[in-house]
């Protein structure tokens, strides 16, 4: 019979504390590392979308934090999000609805500059990042505050 001891909980708590102290979470595909090392942020902007002031501010915070310069690529959302999914881009900017079929393929940030919750079906200015790149998604989230 398997039993548990109070020390099990202590170990779990201690492990959490240690993990938070490190620069976690990390990216499985290393997006943030690559951006910081190369000094280039490969940014896709959906054709016709203009970067509004809150999104500009997010981008400024992100480039300041990573020390990277944006390298902008323009194209339609389908092509850009496919490139993002394949790791050819680091970030895509455009007006996306949270209920878009792409929301399963890539991660959409919170709506930029929105006060309160934007309905899922309503397109709003957002940054898209590769799924699972939790460190990078965290960095974008912190820059969006």
């Amino acid at each position: 019979m398997i039993t548990s001891r109070p020390s099990d909980l202590f170990i779990v708590t201690a492990a959490c504390a240690v993990l938070s102290a490190c620069s976690l979470p990390r990216d499985p595909s290393g997006t943030q590392d690559r951006v910081e090392r190369s000094g280039t942020l490969r940014l896709g902007i959906v054709e016709g979308a203009s970067i509004d002031p809150p999104s500009r501010q997010t981008l400024a915070r992100l480039t300041e934090r990573t020390g990277a310069r944006p390298e902008i690529v323009r194209g339609d959302s389908e092509a850009l999000l496919t490139q993002l999914k394949r790791g050819k881009l680091d970030l895509v900017y455009g007006e996306f609805a949270q209920s878009s079929p792409w929301s399963k393929e890539v991660h959409f940030s919170t709506a930029q500059g929105a006060v309160g919750k934007v309905p899922k079906g309503v397109p709003a200015p957002r940054f898209a990042a590769m799924n699972g790149e939790n460190g990078w998604i965290m960095a974008v989230g912190e820059a969006s505050r």
Partner: peptide, 29 residues
């Protein structure tokens, strides 16, 4: 499939939802 765990903001503080998940799992034990 690469699971995405996004950041969350509470009372102006943004932190990784994963830490909250770990706390919830610890409580569930």
């Amino acid at each position: 499939e690469h699971p995405t765990i996004p950041p969350v903001t509470f009372f102006g503080e943004t932190f990784w939802l994963g830490w909250l998940m770990i706390a919830a799992l610890a409580y569930s034990i």
